[in-house]
Structures are given as structure tokens and as C-alpha cells.
């Protein structure tokens, strides 16, 4: 009886803590009136150690105020990840794989202007220490 209550209490506490720690959606300030929403979820990818590549499936939510030819880029890449032409995009799920912050850029291909930015941060549980590496090898 007491065990069950304590377990429920402990579980509730744990869930609360995890929920508090969960990264929220990153909503970027829109640069252009062409877009009303451009966000990514989760906004942070958690890896075990600093420097380790982080893997996640992230969802980009976007709402455009007008039709046109738009493409999504990962900052630093020339090739677009996805393009929309005269359609109303809402969501895009992409595989995230990086050891550092990744910035996503939405561009109007007709005007060649960046209309919005958002990013996924990479965080970690264990910070790698260069000194006494043996002690904290794992």
C-alpha cells in the first residue's frame, strides 16, 4: 500500500522533472511578413557527452501568409533540404544528426531573400574533461 503510494509519488515527481527538462519548441522571430510561423521541435537535442553526435527527428512547423516558391536550407549547405512551390507547407519532419547547433533557413527562391531562421541546439549530460580523462573515461 505504502509502496504503491510512494511509487506513484516518485513517478509523478520524475515525470514533472523530465517534463520541466524537456526542450520546448524554438520559435524564431520572423524576418518577413511572408511567414507567420517558423518553429522547430524539439529545440534541443540531448546527447550523453559533449562533442558526441546527437540524433533526433525534429519537426519544423511553418505557416506562410502567401503562396510562392520557398526552400528550407541547413545553414552552411548550398543544396536545399526541401522546397515548396505554390503549396501551403505546414510540417516537415527531418532527421537531425549533429554534434553542434544547426540553423535552418527558409528562403524565398524568387526574391532570394531569407525570410526566417530557426535552430536546434545540442546539449549534453556529461561534460568531457580533458584533465584526468581516465577518471571520467566514460
Amino acid at each position: 500500500m505504502y509502496f504503491s503510494r510512494l511509487l506513484i509519488l516518485a513517478s509523478a515527481l520524475l515525470i514533472t522533472t523530465l517534463a520541466n527538462a524537456s526542450p520546448e519548441s524554438a520559435t524564431a522571430p520572423t524576418i518577413s511578413p511572408e511567414i507567420s510561423k517558423f518553429s522547430v521541435l524539439p529545440a534541443t537535442c540531448i546527447t550523453l557527452r559533449k562533442g558526441r553526435k546527437c540524433f533526433a527527428t525534429v519537426t519544423i512547423n511553418l505557416t506562410l501568409t502567401q503562396m510562392g516558391h520557398y526552400c528550407l536550407y541547413q545553414q552552411g549547405n548550398i543544396r536545399p533540404m526541401h522546397c515548396w512551390q505554390n503549396v501551403a507547407p505546414k510540417k516537415l519532419r527531418i532527421a537531425f544528426e549533429s554534434a553542434k547547433k544547426v540553423v535552418y533557413i527558409l528562403k524565398n527562391e524568387t526574391s532570394q531573400k531569407v525570410i526566417a531562421l530557426t535552430s536546434v541546439e545540442v546539449s549534453w549530460v556529461h561534460k568531457t574533461s580533458s584533465r584526468k580523462r581516465r577518471w571520467r573515461i566514460f
Partner: peptide, 26 residues
């Protein structure tokens, strides 16, 4: 029973401490 109480106490402590500590900066 005692183990669970200890676990609960530690979890509560952890929640409190989380506000005070920067992540794993040892």
C-alpha cells in the same frame, strides 16, 4: 520501504539542486 523513502528524498533533493547547479560542471 526505506529504500523508496531514500529514493524519494534523493529525487526531491535532485530537483532542488538542479536549480543550483550548472549541468555536470564538475
Amino acid at each position: 520501504m526505506r529504500r523508496l523513502l531514500i529514493a524519494l528524498f534523493l529525487l526531491l533533493s535532485a530537483n532542488y539542486a538542479a536549480a543550483e547547479h550548472v549541468n555536470d560542471e564538475m
